[in-house]
Amino acid sequence: MRLDALATAIRSKNAGPLLLTFDIVFPSDAAFASGVEAMERLREYVVRRYGRRDADVRSFAHPPSRAIKITIPRIKMSGSVGDTDVYGAQQHGPLLEFEL
């Protein structure tokens, strides 16, 4: 099943001007459990698709919100010349098609 068929939120945003953070929120404990089970594979998918170093991609499971968080470095600092997304709010697209 694709991630966007299961999650209720898949979003990206800056976490400060040098980091980008993805939140994937699940609708139920069962859905969250399947997300947590796939979390390491998802982290590796982010490493590959977004072209970041493995050591720079951190993942967290956050049970109270039934969410997974993945944090990666930005390629350019927010708002510097050549940046493409100052708030980092449109970097989540490739996550939608991740297969659980």
Binding site: K13, T21, F60, H62, S65, R66, K69
Partner: peptide, 15 residues
């Protein structure tokens, strides 16, 4: 869940 999810928002580490 909505209040807990706020600790994710714009934070590198939710804890």
């Amino acid at each position: 869940a909505s209040v807990a999810a706020h600790s994710l928002y714009e934070q590198a580490d939710p804890f």
